[in-house]
Write a protein that binds this DNA or RNA. Structure first.
Length: 813
RNA sequence: GCGGACGUGGUGAAAUUGGUAUACACGCCAGACUUAGGAUCUGGUGCCUCACGGCGUGAAGGUUCAAGUCCUUUCGUCCGCACCA
């Protein structure tokens, strides 16, 4: 059969569409599979990363369908976000128009790949209906204390008048206008993800089987749990007076309570309230104030690069155990947002404190024995026994940790605490193209959530995007409203939500079809969740996947669903490379999927992408290998001329077949067997395709039409998830598609009448022997000795090993 | 610095998990055929050697009858986090 991809691909795509082939059934008694590839941002055109992502997901979904599962395999659009605003500035296009036109175009592109999405559930996160439910969740979170407003230091660009996310700050400057980014206290809404830190950490264990280890480790590190002692330093009497008795104490956190006797100073973050008080009340010299302000203005990232720096604050605290007076400094390496923004400093046993103390000539006090290192050179951070630590002397430092914490607790001086690096999730963005945050500011009532019947709060269309300021804030009327509580004139919140909020629950929206009254139906969630297989790029390892896990748990606790974890199994695909580096417009090394589809067809693109490398690995684009994939499909199509039209698999008497005929059947059934392994295991489609190629090669080395027919009956089934168009065409033409079902592996074809065994001498392969299947071990060994006499003569046989069906190893001396 | 992953032909990669290393492709070489095509078909292709044979999975050791696979050390590449006290 002449291979004409253009014709057959169009034909079958139409067929699938018209007949709703890919829509899931409502019959909830059926076993389900929820297969999801991460939804795309509608940037304009699909790229090879999309092709890979959706080819993998589609193969898994199609396979599940032929195995008889009720399959949900939806698609949608992550359609809020900054690129739409950038396009608006650049091309004078309204973000909405730009976004929805892109969606229409990209929908067509995905269709041309023959992806089996259930399209009836498609939506874009910028749809007002989607915002409505999201705003409901946000209000509910606020009511339950999971969302709050606070002022915090953020990255601010003065030229663009907006907050920037950390990843939008490039070398300390705004990624768009190059303005130097400053730190500024800004009010914003925060979601209390830290409340779930422990559960997010604990539940990683339940994902060990289904998620890549790498991702689990990254999340674990990101959550960053550490245990230690929290206690307070009391200010000395004199310092307390200096600070107007406004503080009395400040709290510090340490994971090294065993070194507490080695504390020689304390250090505060430049943003610490005490530092702010000292500046505000003119209790420091001008130059010190200037230096502190400079430290405050530096971004966290830059502080990591510059040298350690500090200011003596001229106040002292009392050591809680020794009662000695110790100085307090402010240091640029102390983080404001962690452990109370203050630390106890033990320069003898902490590298950072050591560097700081040597720079400013502060005292060192050794409290752990050590013989290897020299304190004149560096801090000693290893294990040892306590010294200079009063009653704790002589205890190993590991034991001392618990004992000292216990002492603090017994004497009400401090307590054991658990700290996390994870911080609350700031969701405010001073952007137009995002979901409005549904709160109202009332001069009397403060922050008030919008009434449910007024949702969704939608964006005004009549705005001009200039890149300066927030169009919602400058709009003449939009923010004017009445307070939902007291009815007085009030203003709307003009910040919009981080787009990660939308992607944190989109997989839940798919489970119910087009509901306008609720975001999703609980019983649909119960049936479809969890996602059985999630497919996406590793770049989302932390942010999206952590937020989505959190959101699922939060919605559970808010009573919407009863799911603990959203994604049971995760497959992280590798990048698509060209000439060894990531495809990008600036490098000029992109390959346009549309061009490939036009030239060779979608099946070729899909086959190449799944064959060239295992899905988890990086994939190097190779034009001639693409050609090779095309040739395989062409050959597969043309050699179908040897196939008979049947509506059931031919029955064959295996033992009466020739050797080549038997081999062909064996290869075909090996491919079928491999298929089951691949979809249940590591998704090594490359090896599955190789098995199919071997099967086709073996079929071609014989000319029995029945065996060809059987072979194609199976191969069009096995290859359907990968190259669906040609498989539907062939299966339709020859088998009335009766083969698109779970096929049984015929074990008899693997049983061979004779065995080929390798013969090794001292582990080195020397020869091979062919024996009948029922030959005894003794016979086999004697045959092996005979055949390899050359290697054995003059030597003594020490041992003979026979591994059934594999090899013989004769050990000689 | 900490954490993770990975090193196999000219290239992309396989190897039933300790049992014949390099399957399947790409590329290359030779030949056949021809409606000269991005054809198609046949054969060959790890390295050294005329050969017998030897050597080969980043390197060096080790365990084992047997190691790409397990252990130790080491080198290199990539990724993530990065002053979290």
């Amino acid at each position: 059969m002449q291979y004409n991809p253009k014709e057959i691909e169009k034909k079958w795509q139409n067929y699938w569409n018209i007949n709703d082939i890919n829509e899931p059934s409502n019959d909830k008694s059926k076993k389900k599979k929820y297969i999801l590839s991460m939804f795309p941002y509608p940037s304009g055109r699909i790229h090879m990363g999309h092709v890979r992502n959706y080819s993998i997901g589609d193969a898994i979904a199609r396979h599940a369908r032929t195995q008889g599962f009720n399959v949900l395999h939806p698609i949608g659009w992550d359609s809020f976000g900054m690129p739409a605003e950038n396009a608006a500035i650049k091309h004078k296009l309204h973000p909405k128009k730009w976004t929805y036109e892109n969606i229409d175009y990209m929908r067509g592109e995905l269709e041309s790949l023959g992806l089996s999405f259930s399209k009836k559930r498609e939506f874009a996160t910028s749809d007002s209906l989607y915002s409505k439910f999201e705003q409901e969740f946000i209000i509910k979170m606020y009511e339950e204390g999971l969302l709050y407003e606070k002022s915090q230091s953020v990255n601010w660009c003065e030229t663009c008048h907006t907050v920037l996310a950390n990843e939008q700050v490039v070398e300390g400057c705004c990624w768009r206008c190059d303005q130097e980014v400053e730190q500024r206290d800004m009010p914003g809404y925060y979601i209390r993800i830290t409340k779930y830190a422990q559960e997010l950490l604990d539940d990683l264990k339940t994902l060990e089987k289904g998620w890549p280890k790498q991702v689990l480790t990254m999340q674990e590190n990101w959550i960053g749990r550490s245990e230690g002692l929290e206690f307070s330093f009391a200010l000395s009497e004199e310092s307390d007076k200096k600070l107007g008795q406004n503080f009395n104490t400040f709290s510090v956190f340490t994971t090294r309570p065993d070194t507490i006797y080695g504390v020689t100073y304390a250090a505060l973050a430049p943003e610490h309230e005490i530092v702010k008080y000292l500046i505000a009340h003119d209790l420091l010299d001008e130059d010190k104030k200037e230096a502190l302000k400079k430290m405050q203005n530096m971004s966290e990232r830059d502080r990591g690069i510059v040298e350690k720096e500090g200011i003596d604050l001229g106040i002292t605290v009392i050591h809680p155990l020794t009662g000695k007076e110790i100085p307090v400094w402010s240091a640029n390496f102390v983080l404001a947002g962690y452990g109370g923004g203050a630390v106890m400093s033990v320069p003898a046993h902490d590298e950072r404190d050591y560097a700081f103390a040597t720079k400013y000539d502060l005292a060192l006090k050794e409290v752990i024995t050590h013989d290897s290192s020299d304190l004149a050179e560096e801090a000693f951070t290893g294990q040892g026994v306590l010294i200079n630590s009063e009653s704790f002397d002589g205890i190993s430092n590991e034991d001392a940790k618990a004992k000292i914490i216990a002492y603090f607790e017994e004497n009400a001086l401090g307590k054991r605490v658990v700290n996390y690096k994870l911080r609350d999730w700031g969701i405010s963005r001073q952007r137009y193209w995002g979901a409005p945050i549904p709160f109202v500011h009332c001069t009397d009532c403060g922050i008030v959530p919008e009434k449910k019947e007024n949702l969704p709060i939608t964006l005004p269309d009549d705005v001009e995007i200039t890149g300066e300021g927030n169009p919602l804030d400058t709009h003449p009327t939009w923010k004017k409203c009445q307070c939902p509580k007291c009815g007085k004139d009030a203003t709307r919140e003009t910040d919009t939500m981080d787009t990660f909020v939308q992607s944190s629950w989109y997989f839940l929206r798919y489970v119910s079809e087009n509901r306008t009254d609720v975001a999703f139906e609980k019983q649909d969630v119960d049936y479809w969740m969890n996602v059985d297989q999630y497919v996406g790029g590793i770049e989302h390892a932390i942010l999206h996947l952590l937020y989505a896990r959190f959101f699922t748990k939060a919605l559970r606790d808010l009573g919407y669903i009863s799911v603990d974890e959203p994604f049971a199994n995760l497959l992280t695909q590798g990048m698509v490379l060209k000439d060894g580096s990531k495809m990008s417009k600036s490098k000029g090394n992109t390959i346009d999927p549309d061009a490939i589809i036009k030239e060779f067809g979608a099946d070729t693109a899909r086959l190449f992408i799944l064959f060239a490398a295992p899905p988890q690995k990086e994939l190097e684009w190779n034009d001639s290998a693409v050609m090779g994939s095309f040739k395989f499909i062409k050959r597969f199509s043309e050699r179908a001329e040897h196939v008979n039209v049947v509506d059931t698999i031919p029955i064959l008497e295996h033992s009466s077949l020739s050797k080549n005929e038997q081999l062909a059947r064996k290869k075909v059934y090996e491919a079928l067997k491999k298929s089951a392994e691949v979809y249940e295991g590591n998704f090594a489609f490359n090896t599955l395709v190789a098995a199919c190629m071997e099967a086709l090669n073996a079929l071609n080395d014989q000319d029995n039409r029945d065996i060809y027919t059987e072979g194609y009956y199976i191969l069009t089934n096995v290859l359907e998830p990968i190259i669906p168009h040609i498989c539907w065409e062939l299966a339709d033409k020859f088998f009335a598609r009766t083969n698109f079902k779970k096929l049984e592996v015929l074990e008899e074809v693997f049983v061979e009448s004779s065995l080929t065994l390798a013969v090794s001498i001292n582990g080195k392969r020397r020869d091979e022997i062919e024996v009948a299947r029922d030959t005894s071990k003794e016979e086999i060994l004697s045959l092996a000795r005979e055949q390899c006499a050359k290697w054995i003569e003059d030597k003594q046989i020490i041992k003979e090993i026979y591994v059934p069906n594999k090899l013989i190893n004769i050990v000689v001396k």
